[in-house]
Structure formats: structure tokens, C-alpha cells
């Protein structure tokens, strides 16, 4: 079953400096991108980075990401 994963960008302001969810997820479900398009090799201000669920098919629902997020920004539901 695919989960719905939401990240509150208002709470997660600088994911590149935090990246706790990216590192803890056992199955690399999250992806780090930007909200200004896929300009993958440009210098982009830290505030433009966002985290999203990408590999939903690999999510077990372990909730480690929800627990570790210091901003309470992540919701995972099935």
C-alpha cells in the first residue's frame, strides 16, 4: 500500500542543514529537491530546498521519520 506523505514547508525551513529524515529513513523514501524547478547544478539559496516523499513504494510505515523530525513537519498515513 502506498502511504500519503506530507511535509509542511512552513515548518521545514532548511532541509539541507537538517536532513534528519533523509538519513534515518531505512528505505530512502525521501528526496531533496527545490521549489524553483529542477536546476540541479545551480547554486540555490538554502530556503528554496524542499523534502518530499518520492519512493512511496518502499515505505514500511515505521514512522522513524515522523519521530525524528525536530519541527514536527512530517505526516505519514495509510
Amino acid at each position: 500500500m502506498l502511504p500519503t506523505i506530507t511535509i509542511d514547508d512552513e515548518k521545514c525551513k532548511e532541509p539541507l542543514s537538517c536532513r534528519k529524515c533523509l538519513l534515518i529513513c531505512p528505505s530512502y523514501v525521501f528526496g531533496l529537491g527545490t521549489n524553483v524547478g529542477p536546476q540541479k547544478f545551480r547554486e540555490i539559496a538554502l530556503s528554496h530546498f524542499i523534502v518530499r516523499g518520492v519512493r512511496f513504494d518502499k515505505c514500511s510505515g515505521c514512522m522513524e521519520c515522523v519521530e525524528i523530525c525536530p519541527q514536527n513537519a512530517i505526516q505519514v498515513s495509510f
Binding site: 528526496g31 531533496l32 529537491g33 527545490t34 521549489n35 524553483v36 524547478g37 529542477p38 536546476q39 540541479k40 524542499i50 523534502v51 518530499r52 518520492v54
Partner: peptide, 8 residues
Amino acid sequence: AEANPQAA
């Protein structure tokens, strides 16, 4: 990118 941040 919003739809698919991995593309970024």
C-alpha cells in the same frame, strides 16, 4: 520540481 523533487 514540485511534483517530482527527485528530478531536481
